[in-house]
């Protein structure tokens, strides 16, 4: 296809992506270097006959408003926002490293810094949910592959539900069941014989609930892809493996799994990308007291009713984008190599 026809065809799509994906990234980068204006403060001297004159500082609301309207970006702050307490917290980390009571103390204190808290949960979620969801999905695929064809349709129908449901809605449904008055929460209380048990009250339980929810939500995707992959396992290879005397497990180990490996890479990549932006479950589970994620921090900064902290949100966004690029880099590097070899 000649260049001109190509660009005519791809223009709408490309324009949409550049305007609303590439440009916003630039916008985020710029915003992250600014911080909102401080309130304009005026000094007013009030004199009373008895106590003499006192100087009082007052916020000049009108001037503040005007300044903010004139320069909506705020004032230039360089990399200040990146380094402050709510983001990389360089000073605090320095202090913790130079003066701490052992490893446990260090971890606990670093965990109290908002950015590292969010990062800790985000990474845990990404790297726990992804492999477990894939494993569960693979097991379901093997199981479903063995049941009579008649039942496969309904089983696939129900299996799709946890994935297809709106993430926020899915989180709410599970959250209601897991709350202490819901069926799961109540059952757990009875089983563990602890009437005060509440998944919300402890950080560990909240994390576990979120992780289990994540696996439940993500497993169907792996299942569907692996199930489709199982249908294309070459019969000839399977049969020659049987003739060569491979057991059922050996056939899975040496024929099926190698056949599914490219699919697994694909699923893993997609799920890593999706899980890294974990966000809705935290809102749905109202879990922000015990678990926050990078996406949630950005959301929280932007949601502020009085002041929307654009600078702060932008800085977290930039750090998140760096995270995404680090996650993607093995893929990008490999594709780059493959491409150059061609």
């Amino acid at each position: 296809m000649p260049h001109r026809a190509f660009f005519a065809f791809i223009m709408p799509s490309l324009a949409a992506m550049l305007l609303f994906i590439a440009l916003p990234i630039v916008s985020v980068a710029v915003q992250s270097l600014y911080v909102q204006h401080e309130r304009v403060v005026t000094e007013v001297e009030t004199c009373t006959p008895f106590s003499g004159c006192t100087k009082e500082t007052r916020v000049d609301a009108e001037a503040t408003e005007k300044l903010r309207n004139d320069e909506p970006l705020g004032r230039f702050n360089g990399f200040g926002t990146y380094l402050d307490r709510n983001h990389l917290a360089v000073t605090e980390i320095g202090a913790i490293l130079s003066d701490n009571a052992g490893f446990k103390d260090t971890v606990a204190r670093v965990y109290n810094l908002p950015f590292y808290r969010a990062l800790a949960f985000t990474l845990t979620y990404t790297f726990v949910v992804t492999p477990f969801a894939m494993l569960l999905g693979f097991c379901i695929a093997l199981g479903v592959n063995a049941i009579p064809p008649f039942y496969k349709g309904p089983v696939i129908f129900f299996s799709l539900l946890p994935m297809i449901v709106t993430p926020l809605v899915g989180a709410l449904i599970v959250y209601w069941m897991a709350s202490s008055q819901g069926i799961l929460g109540a059952t757990l209380q009875v089983l563990l014989n602890d009437p005060t048990l509440s998944l919300k009250s402890s950080a560990v339980l909240t994390w576990i609930t979120l992780l289990v929810y994540g696996i439940w939500h993500n497993a169907p995707f792996s299942f569907v892809v692996f199930y489709a992959g199982l249908q294309t396992v070459p019969h000839d290879t399977l049969e020659s493996a049987m003739i060569d005397g491979a057991s059922r497990w050996e056939r899975i180990r040496f024929v099926v799994i190698p056949h599914l490996m490219p699919l697994a890479t694909f699923v893993g990549l997609v799920q890593l990308m999706d899980n890294f932006r974990v966000f809705e479950p935290i809102v749905g589970f109202s879990a922000e007291a015990n678990a926050t994620s990078l996406s949630w921090s950005i959301f929280n900064d932007l949601r502020g009713q009085v002041d929307q902290l654009f600078g702060s949100a932008a800085a977290t966004s930039m750090l998140t984008i760096v995270g995404v690029i680090i996650l993607l880099s093995p893929v990008l590097v490999r594709t780059w190599r493959d491409f150059n070899r061609r």
Binding site: S27, Q31, F276, L294
Partner: peptide
């Protein structure tokens, strides 16, 4: 490849670029 990178961007980071 560019589309793949764009696909990986968390939506909320893009939103923080739009708002202002």
């Amino acid at each position: 490849m560019l589309a793949l990178v764009f696909r990986a961007m968390p939506h909320i980071t893009l939103v923080s670029g739009y708002l202002l």
